[in-house]
Design a protein around this nucleic acid. Structure first.
Length: 277
DNA sequence: TAGGGAAGCCATCTCTCGGA
DNA sequence: TCCGAGAGATGGCTTCCCTA
């Protein structure tokens, strides 16, 4: 199912003009489609899918051109009021008109204003902000545009502020609570997740033998017990403690003489089965 | 010196927006 | 206005290394 060239030719200028008159941060596919429908004067519902695709297409082109002012053919000469700040605005307003609920998030985003570059969670030095900010803004803008079609994607970028707490917890809390064990730790901090991670899994025979006959443990518990075993038997390589030297029982599980701690969890998961299986 | 980020697993939760 | 859907975050565990 596709749009005829004639229809496409008819729709494109209309969509472009709607985009040109709108704030790219707030406009939605639905609104554009409605506008288009009003313009053409008949119901576009049967063609909703292709229309949507076309709208997204035009939207991307607009976005890539750095906003309205850059789009040559549409050239409706509006730009500055809406996207005049080209790249700068979209960064700030990456999640456009989501005022109500997102205030909390906005506060978060203010907090972490320095790491505007979204996907990589590396901390970015604050210097070369100007050059980077520009680049980041551009990337962000592009990403926002691309993310727009998917639900909730536009605002998601604002979110990751919580990362910090997670990190703080993992390294610190682990030490504090130490062997307070997974289950007790989780409910003491009222992390009330009962499923998922804490779901008891059946251990493979080799793993069960390694852990002293345990038949069912949650994943974190399993990892923890394996580490206890490793320490108990001093199986960490002294030169690189991330490397684990496997003794016989461990070799039965991991099938290797040495294993990296990260790989260990991977292989561990292959030795854990859902009780159903 | 302290703290954060790195990989790996994955079920569940959270958030947001589109559509009816 | 409510429901459904999509995508990312979360949580638990570990050690090392780099940065502030």
């Amino acid at each position: 199912m596709s749009l005829s060239p004639e229809a496409r030719d008819q729709y494109v200028p209309i969509i472009d003009s709607i985009l040109a008159k709108s704030d790219l941060n707030t406009i939605s596919e639905k609104r554009i489609r409605k506008g288009l429908q009003e313009e053409v004067g008949y119901d576009l519902t049967p063609q909703k899918a292709v229309i949507k695709q076309l709208i997204m297409e035009r939207f991307d082109i607009f976005a890539e051109n750095g906003g309205i002012d850059a789009s040559p053919e549409a050239a409706v000469a509006t730009a500055p009021a809406t996207n005049g700040h080209s790249s700068a605005t979209p960064v700030e307003a990456s999640s456009p008109a989501q005022s109500s609920k997102s205030q909390k998030r906005q506060a978060d985003s203010v907090e972490r204003e320095s790491d505007k570059t979204p996907p990589v969670k590396k901390k970015k030095p604050d210097h070369d902000v100007d050059a980077d900010a520009l680049f980041a803004a551009k990337l962000q803008a592009e990403e926002n545009m691309r993310a727009r079609p998917t639900r909730g994607a536009s605002a998601r970028k604002v979110q990751p502020a919580k990362k910090k707490t997670t990190k703080a917890k993992t390294s610190k809390k682990v030490k504090v609570e130490d062997d307070s064990d997974v289950d007790s730790g989780s409910d003491s901090k009222k992390v009330n997740r009962s499923g998922g991670f804490h779901k008891p899994l059946t251990l493979s025979p080799a793993l069960s033998a390694l852990l002293g006959g345990e038949e069912s443990l949650s994943r974190p518990q399993t990892v923890k017990k394996v580490w206890a075993y490793i320490r108990e038997h001093e199986l960490q390589d002294p030169s690189d403690r991330r490397q684990i030297r496997c003794d016989e029982p461990m070799r039965a599980v991991f099938k290797q003489d040495r294993i990296h701690m990260f790989t260990m969890t991977k292989i561990l998961s292959q030795n854990l089965y859902s009780p159903d299986e």
